[in-house]
Design a protein around this nucleic acid. Sequence first.
DNA 1: CGCCTCAGTCAACAGCCGTAGAATGAACGG
DNA 2: CCGTTCATTCTACGGCTGTTGACTGAGGCG
Lengths: 192, 192
Amino acid sequence: MTDPSPKPTRAQQRRRTEEDILVAARQMFAELGYERTTIRAVARAAGVDPGLVMHYYGSKDELFSRATRHSADELPAGTAEEVAEALLASLARRLDGEPVASLAVLRSMLTNADAADRYRAAGEPQLSRIAAAIPTADAELRAGLLGAIVHGVIIERYLLRLGGLAGASPEQIVDLLRPCFQLLAAATPGRR
Amino acid sequence: MTDPSPKPTRAQQRRRTEEDILVAARQMFAELGYERTTIRAVARAAGVDPGLVMHYYGSKDELFSRATRHSADELPAGTAEEVAEALLASLARRLDGEPVASLAVLRSMLTNADAADRYRAAGEPQLSRIAAAIPTADAELRAGLLGAIVHGVIIERYLLRLGGLAGASPEQIVDLLRPCFQLLAAATPGRR
DNA sequence: CGCCTCAGTCAACAGCCGTAGAATGAACGG
DNA sequence: CCGTTCATTCTACGGCTGTTGACTGAGGCG
């Protein structure tokens, strides 16, 4: 078998360093947000020289862009009830272990235009899927509310760490939210 | 009658200038967040010298603190249904014309510890009120979810200006949310 | 072995920031 | 009318930031 430890080739070492930088950057962007994260601090956390970060990624903007590029779950098409359930499942997955790259976007989206755009770009196709499945005239608003709830919960759990939400289990949260989602996705909720 | 225009006394002029600075600061903190708002820019917007801002408020932190000091609505005690309805009414009020001071806190809370504390301090008593009115064992979690929904909606409407929510009327939003709030506040929601 | 490529380092610059303190000049009180 | 207060301005300092370009030294290869 090939021994992986003794002599990493130059290209391997380079890829490893680039990845180290990206990991450190994701972590810091997620914890501090875009503005308070400095290239010097990222470099220190990755154990390299600040100039190297610039050399590989060109600018802080580009570093943020590369660090936060990630794929969101796709929602299947289907009936409103099915889409609501799929959204709940997606939320449950994110509720234990939201990806750091996604947290970095959420942390920065209120103070950085790029992050806000990235947030919109990631959420829009999902919102369209949801809206398409809701049969009422206010489908877009209902989809917007569902998105607001999902992100409100993630923000308070992971970014603000509020007691009531940070302590609960994903299943508990999802179970409480399920009837709300069904109601918002359903055609005409019963009056009263 | 006293003519208010011709010669403002020195104390009047001072109060007016202080207020101008506070208004400009609130606006900029709400639009840009804490870190991207500079004392120089606030001074320019208020039409005064940057040194004056320091002279009156001592530091940027203190300026932020003074600019974001405002009173939140109080929620009345009562049954779970009543508290849920009061929370909806509070949301409706905030949905047309959220106060700028409050937007400044929301905009900055993800990247500034003081803002996060201020957010927690403003929301906690309300959450306690809600939790106290909910008769189930998971009352605190339910209250946390209600808070997350309220703030998620306000963030997407005013800070991110997402189409589905920014365009809707407060009544529309509140009407859609009412059954959800009742469900979350009610004792045991019907299964299914 | 000897050259070249290239991962990684170092030192420096220009700009912006919060902040401090001296200077100015007009309103006030006696 | 004169001395004092005080709202306001001006200038400057030190620190941190993103970014640049020259430099170093070891791996890859003929």
